[in-house]
């Protein structure tokens, strides 16, 4: 079967974990190249070890190969803004794992179909990938007036980039709860916990409902279905318990609040298992790449 050639740009931790995930899952993509800028980087050495072509010429190495159709950008927001233009000019699809958000937010089980023609999609943030599907699972049953999510992550699994830009991380995640999750208003609260041994990523979603009549069982069913969909590509994604229906004092009066508690354990491909926050980013990006690659193949078959 013909495959779509893909490349990873950025040979840091994210790029390396993503590489292992692509190699582990046989599908419509063929990983043709890992490109970084540091000839000494561990990521490039690991790529070569795995039999994948590696280059320290960065984006130029990718642009030099016309057969590469999908590019995962695991560099930085600043770099991606420049890379995005070059990739688009070269007709390559960009899957952006940085906070740059040049293209629309993409959360695979929610809005892939809306952006199937996009040339650049953004993977939001780890907390967004984990919680936007849960908010959407509620909002497809009953309107969500306000969604709040608390993502608690092991301190060790938060890199310097996120630490220096924690406000951007928070805003991006809250935006995704609205744009992708469908909440009318939203707030995101990240918590970094330094406990040893490191804790697994846990997320709590509160969804405030203004409607008087709604079927909580329907919501519960919808949440379970969504968790199943996400866990197909993030195996360690699960509920910590049954969703709860509570009633709380809110700025809009005493209202029903749906509480969903979720946990994300990593697959341990390159990152330690507690780093579910990093794992869900690379696992989701791989899934998105796979879906676009299948889509490209299908289109070509139809075209022939």
């Amino acid at each position: 079967m013909a495959k779509i050639k893909a490349a990873i740009l950025g040979s840091g931790n994210i790029g390396t974990d993503l590489m292992y995930k692509i190699l582990k899952n046989d599908g419509a993509m063929e990983l043709a190249l890992v490109a970084g800028i540091d000839p000494e980087s561990e990521g490039l050495a690991r790529a070569r070890e795995a039999g994948i072509e590696a280059s320290h010429d960065g984006i130029d190495a990718i642009l030099a190969d016309p057969d590469i159709r999908i590019v995962f950008d695991a560099t930085s927001a600043k770099a991606h803004i420049q890379n995005a233009e070059k990739l688009e000019a070269a007709g390559k699809m960009a899957i952006d794992l940085t906070p740059a958000a040049v293209g629309p937010y993409l959360v695979p089980p929610v809005n892939l179909d809306d952006h199937i023609g996009a040339k650049n999609v953004n993977m939001v943030s780890c907390a967004g990938q984990a919680t936007a599907p849960l908010v959407y699972a509620v909002s497809r049953v009953v309107p969500v007036h306000y969604a709040e999510m608390i993502a608690t992550v092991a301190s060790r699994a938060i890199g310097p980039g996120t630490r220096q830009n924690v406000d951007e991380f928070t805003r991006t995640t809250a935006n995704a709860l609205m744009e992708v999750g469908g909440a009318k208003t939203a707030r995101a609260i990240p918590v970094f916990n330094p406990a040893e041994p490191p804790i697994t990523m846990t997320n709590t979603v509160y969804a405030v409902i203004q409607e008087k009549d709604f079927d909580f069982d329907e919501i519960r069913k919808s949440v379970h279905e969504m968790v199943k969909d996400v866990s197909e590509y993030v195996p360690g994604y699960r509920l910590k318990g049954e969703p709860l229906l509570d009633e709380r004092e809110t700025p809009w009066g005493r209202l029903p609040v749906i509480v969903i508690m979720n946990e994300v354990e990593g697959a341990g491909d390159f990152f330690p298992k507690y780093a579910g926050n990093l794992d869900i980013m690379t696992a989701s990006a791989r899934k998105v790449g796979e879906l676009y690659a299948s889509h490209f193949l299908q289109k070509e078959e139809v075209g022939q």
């Binding site: 608390i150 918590v191 916990n193 846990t202 709590t204 910590k240």
Partner: peptide, 21 residues
């Protein structure tokens, strides 16, 4: 025991549900 930090109020219901179960 779980060394929760400020902001982790969401863990309260989680722990309560576990103890109750």
């Amino acid at each position: 025991k779980r060394k929760v930090v400020g902001g982790q109020e969401d863990m309260i219901v989680d722990v309560a549900a576990e103890i109750a179960a």
